[in-house]
Nucleic acid binder design. Sequence first.
DNA 1: GTACTGTGTTGCAGATTCGTGACAACTCTG
DNA 2: CAGAGTTGTCACGAATCTGCAACACAGTAC
Lengths: 231, 231
Amino acid sequence: MPAKQVLIVEDERPIREMIAFGLKRAGFEVREAEDCRSARAALADTRPDLVLVDWMLPDMSGLELTRALKRDRETRELPVIMLTARAEEGDKVAGLEGGADDYVTKPFSPRELLARINAVLRRSTPSGVDELIEFEGLVLDQGSHRVMVGPRTVGLGPTEYRMLEFFMTHPERVYTRDQLLDRIWGGNVYVEERTIDVHIRRLRKALEEFGYDRFVQTVRGSGYRFSARTV
Amino acid sequence: MPAKQVLIVEDERPIREMIAFGLKRAGFEVREAEDCRSARAALADTRPDLVLVDWMLPDMSGLELTRALKRDRETRELPVIMLTARAEEGDKVAGLEGGADDYVTKPFSPRELLARINAVLRRSTPSGVDELIEFEGLVLDQGSHRVMVGPRTVGLGPTEYRMLEFFMTHPERVYTRDQLLDRIWGGNVYVEERTIDVHIRRLRKALEEFGYDRFVQTVRGSGYRFSARTV
DNA sequence: GTACTGTGTTGCAGATTCGTGACAACTCTG
DNA sequence: CAGAGTTGTCACGAATCTGCAACACAGTAC
């Protein structure tokens, strides 16, 4: 999963940098702006996944910015979280009215902010549109974590599912055991390379019943490949 | 979209009419009451989408009315906005504690009031129109917060209902425990993830009697999914 | 053919993850 | 204020998964 990008719009530099620091450490890519003008500039050349807007800004209130974002077709779907001071709490409703997806009251803990950001990001991922990937009748549904053949479901364990998901999203290409460990298990686990073989075996066995085990191919001396072309 | 109906409970006639005028111009249908007695009468024969209650009323304080509304199962979901004078500001908390969904401080601008009303309405589920969702005989009635199978009602606690409501409005998709906490409990509560399991268990138990527990599916290593596809 | 390397297959013990009942704290109701 | 219902935790056992090692088998080089 690529790093999510967050645009911070906040005029007070210390606060802005504190937030930026926290977000970077949490793996976000961060872009900063100190007023609405520079925020617009930032939006012109990048497309963040989320915008963090301070309620009080020098040139235009954060509310205005939010409204503007929600009005523009280009940025309507862009999630916005507002930062408000406790004293401005009465304006919460107005903040939400402006179209913000959530708000966080200052002072807030980095943990809290992160939680909100993640919540909003998760929510903004479309839930209805399921990505279906198909190879000759073998269907992968990433939304429901299911693999189907016609009306029947292929019974897969967690690792087998992740493996097949990776393969079906990266077909026609050979991966070494090392690469597979990296991309399916995640970079920082120590697992024997031969373990891959075992999981390949399990995956094949699960697909066998439906005749799709031939898609999981061994490339001797290199690794494995998923391909619908049965060469 | 049909016009939303608002019930105004305010003893001072000029203010009441001013509000009514503004709301009508904004496209609302308005019903007026000057005290709690007439408010009850109005509620008896119509079902407004929102109630606007003045804090100071001759017969019973607005707070009492609000409490009464929130206590009654029939009107619990009915959004209430309280009107308070600046001097009574200290009572804000009490107002919200009484169950009001929001409050507006006098003097207020029509714009502000409208904004609050719209915000609250958006937040509340549409009353009146019963949204029915069905999966193979299992019917969710979002209007009455009930779940039925044929003529029988499934006995669900509040949390179980919310859980099932979320699932039935987001079927065929896996949600992690984390996501479920976010979207069912709300973003800012700290609850153990394993608590989800317990509620899943309770939900299944309630559905079991009707044979629908199979719709609530475990996706090992990921979370849970609601799906009518059992295969 | 033999030796050697790389891959398939299997069984298993340890580790995870889930289901479930019990329970105390709480809230709502009458 | 008592009783009923609800909620979040915990602990324990059951179900399942995982990684590994050991052996079987296949392909390749000599």
